[in-house]
């Protein structure tokens, strides 16, 4: 690859951001336009949602269990192990559930989209689709976006629940708490604001995963190697964006709700 001068590099980056914004904008606008690809949406929903279920269940369970262990050892110093449930549910629902699920789904779906669309790009299948009179934005991007956002929402709920369950198992087997103690503390202090915060995040993260994955797929250049490069970049970019946006969304919502 030729070495670019700084201003050329800057130009390239600006163009990339511009193109990404266009793609993101179009994919949302297309939700409201004909034709809609319901079949493709269902296929993607199955691929992303059902396909990610095992890994999300597993990570949810184990992170919940670990959270219970970690927080209880801190709480022990204050003699309030009975609050374990509350800490697990707060961290799971507000933060770890949505972020971890999104990172897991980014690992599967953003890379999957980048490599699938990237291969289609380098073998001219995207051009062939355009030549056949079909808008790849509508046929390929919008169903993926929609499916990711919806599925990520439900996967996050499942992950949250699995986390609570993991914490519960640890609480009754290792920490000597009762079922009653754990679940009451887990949900007594929970407020609408916490649940809202946790469940609004998947919408943003799902959007990031699908648009970044599709963007890198569509901008693939240079054969099989290019596909590999796009896939890695999609993974890195979507994860980084999720973490950055997580901070800002959290800050904003804490500002709005005061907690």
């Amino acid at each position: 690859m030729p070495i670019l001068s700084p201003d050329e590099l800057a130009k390239e980056k600006v163009a990339a951001v511009q193109e990404y914004s266009l793609l993101a904008g179009h994919s949302v606008a297309n939700i409201f336009r004909q034709p809609r690809y319901l079949g493709d949406l269902l296929i993607q929903a199955d691929l992303i949602g059902v396909g990610s279920l095992p890994i999300v269940t597993l990570t949810g369970l184990s992170i919940g269990a670990v959270l219970a262990l970690q927080t209880s050892s801190t709480l022990q110093q204050f003699g309030s192990v009975s609050l374990t449930g509350q800490l697990v549910s707060f961290s799971m629902i507000k933060e770890i559930g949505p972020v971890l699920t999104s990172l897991m789904v980014a690992g599967r779906a953003a890379t999957g989209m980048a490599s699938e669309l990237g291969s289609m790009k380098v073998t001219e299948q995207i051009d062939a689709m355009r030549a056949l009179g079909t808008d790849p934005m509508k046929k390929l991007v919008t169903p993926r976006l929609f499916a990711t956002v919806i599925m990520l929402f439900f996967l996050t709920i499942i992950a949250d629940f699995m986390g609570l369950l993991g914490g519960y198992i640890v609480a009754i087997t290792l920490l000597g708490l009762t079922t009653q103690q754990y679940w009451t503390s887990a949900y007594q202090q929970l407020q609408f604001a916490d649940v809202f915060q946790g469940l609004s995040k998947p919408f943003f993260f799902g959007f990031i995963i699908a648009t970044v994955g599709c963007y890198y797929g569509f901008s693939t250049k240079g054969g099989t190697q290019g596909v590999g490069r796009s896939t890695t970049q999609a993974m890195v970019a979507s994860s980084v964006l999720i973490l950055i946006f997580d901070f800002f969304i959290t800050r904003l919502l804490i500002g709005v709700f005061g907690r």
Partner: peptide, 22 residues
């Protein structure tokens, strides 16, 4: 591009490498 899709429905194209949906 949005208007081209309609026009392209009257045109067929055979790509050099076939470009079939694999």
């Amino acid at each position: 591009e949005a208007e081209l899709f309609e026009l392209r429905r009257n045109i067929g194209m055979v790509f050099q490498e076939s470009a079939l949906f694999d």
